[in-house]
């Protein structure tokens, strides 16, 4: 069961829509641009990943297009924690 729970904090889109954002693991990224290309509102997700920053963009819908389409598993959802400043 552990596997199912492994990312329980960030796997639910429901939660994410309210309180989450997209985070990245930049060492996996090859800057192919599929994320930016598929963002419905044109956020340059790839540039965030290059700078090793979370996609904290006021217009981000957390629709998950970039997360789902990234061929290398660079992107994930994480819940925003207002009180902890971390790279995640």
């Amino acid at each position: 069961m552990a596997l199912l729970n492994i990312f329980k904090n960030n796997s639910s889109k429901h939660n994410v829509l309210a309180t989450g954002h997209v985070i990245s693991e930049s060492s996996r990224c090859v800057q192919c641009g599929i994320c930016s290309y598929n963002c419905p509102i044109g956020i340059d997700v790839r540039a965030h990943v290059w700078r090793d920053e979370a996609v904290k963009h006021s217009e981000c819908l957390t629709c998950g297009e970039c997360v789902a389409r990234c061929p290398r598993g660079v992107l994930r959802f994480a819940q925003t924690d207002l009180f902890v400043r971390s790279k995640e």
Binding site: Q31, G33, S36, A47, R69
Partner: peptide, 10 residues
């Protein structure tokens, strides 16, 4: 075909 050429430029 998942990308257009212009999307390859970061």
């Amino acid at each position: 075909g998942e990308l257009e050429d212009k999307a390859l430029f970061p």
